[in-house]
Computed example of a mutant assay.
Amino acid sequence: MAVNVNNAFVGRPPIDGGVFFRAPQGSTLPTDSTTALNVAFVDHGAVGENGVTVAQTRDNTDIKMYGGETFINVQTNYDEQITITLLEDDNLAVLKTAFGDANVETTAATVSEGLLKTIYHTSDPLPISSFVIDAISGTKTKRYVVENGQVVNVAETQDVHNNVTQRTLTIKTYKPTSVALKGGNVVEYRNDGEPTGP
Rank of each mutant, 00 (worst) to 15 (best):
V3A: 14
V3I: 14
N6Y: 06
P14R: 05
D16M: 10
D16W: 12
V19T: 13
L29C: 02
P30M: 00
T34E: 06
V39M: 14
A46V: 07
V47T: 07
N50P: 07
G51L: 01
T53Y: 00
Q56T: 12
T57A: 05
T57C: 08
I63E: 05
T70L: 06
V74K: 03
V74W: 04
T76P: 06
Q81M: 08
I82F: 00
I84N: 00
T85W: 15
D90M: 12
L92I: 10
V94I: 06
K96G: 03
K96D: 03
F99Q: 09
A102H: 04
V104N: 09
E105D: 12
T110V: 13
G114I: 08
G114H: 05
T118A: 09
P125E: 02
L126D: 06
I133V: 11
I136W: 02
K140P: 01
K142M: 12
R143M: 12
V146H: 04
N148S: 13
Q150N: 08
V152Q: 07
N153P: 14
A155L: 06
E156P: 03
V160M: 01
H161W: 14
T165W: 00
T165V: 12
Q166D: 10
K172E: 07
T173I: 04
T177A: 10
L181F: 11
L181C: 09
V187W: 11
E188T: 13
N191F: 03
E194L: 12
P195N: 13
P195M: 13
G197T: 10
